[in-house]
């Protein structure tokens, strides 16, 4: 089993590059889906204490929307797309505009919105995963997505309990996508974080494939 605390900068850089390639592909897919420009940040790969994960992402009590998928195969990992609730709603509206044009029904029920959000999250996360698996030459299968709207700390409990079984640190690959204004009069930027959590034994495979182990 890899000791997360002994990771060196070269290894973290290599993992960051994996994040970069995954995010690039996810941004392209999202851009096609929403027919608008997408910006992305340079991804981060950080080792974070599982006890302070929610502080790492923001206010533990803040309300977020999250889409979760699990990838099976040689390179097993979990992925979460997290957004502030307001950003998630704006993103859903953008998608619905594609469907309904300017006459988006205002009385859509929450389930419909969650379904749209799940689909956006699913497309982002599967494009991310496809790129990563292609890069390292592995086969994978992806689960159906799950969605939750809740306090940030409760969502990150999932992350903490995955890594908590191995130790006290989590490796998170973290990147931000920003959806620009689709029409000229809208200036609001929509942000979202992709969080990739490789299984501890998959990390070893990843590093070996990247030739940094």
């Amino acid at each position: 089993m890899l000791d997360l605390s002994s990771f060196n900068n070269l290894q973290l850089d290599a993992i960051r590059e994996v994040g970069n390639i995954g995010t690039g592909n996810a941004a392209t897919a999202l851009s096609k889906l929403l027919a608008c420009m997408i910006d992305m940040d340079v991804p981060r790969a950080d080792l974070v204490s599982i006890y302070s994960l929610s502080e790492y992402y923001g206010d533990p009590d803040s309300v977020v929307a999250a889409v979760f998928v699990r990838s099976f195969g040689e390179f097993g990992c979990s992925l979460i797309f997290i957004q502030e609730e307001e950003d998630a709603d704006l993103m859903v509206n953008l998608l619905l505009k594609q469907q309904f044009g300017d006459s988006v029904p205002t009385d859509l029920d929450p389930e419909m919105k969650d379904s749209a959000l799940t689909e956006v999250g699913n497309i982002i996360l599967s494009s991310f995963l496809n790129a990563v698996n292609m890069l390292i030459g592995t086969q994978h299968q992806i689960s159906v997505p799950g969605v939750a709207r809740d306090m940030l700390a409760s969502i990150l409990d999932v992350v903490a309990s995955i890594f908590g079984q191995m130790g006290d640190m989590a490796l998170v690959i973290n990147t931000q996508l920003r959806v620009g204004a689709s029409s000229q009069n809208e200036e609001r930027v929509i942000s979202g974080n992709i969080v990739m959590l490789p299984d501890p034994d998959a990390l070893e495979l990843l590093l070996r494939k990247l030739q940094v182990l």
């Binding site: 159906v144 799950g146 409760s154 999932v158 309990s161």
Partner: peptide
């Protein structure tokens, strides 16, 4: 927090 239908996910 998350349910993935049809997937055995212990964690």
């Amino acid at each position: 927090m998350f349910a993935l239908p049809g997937v055995a996910t212990d964690f």
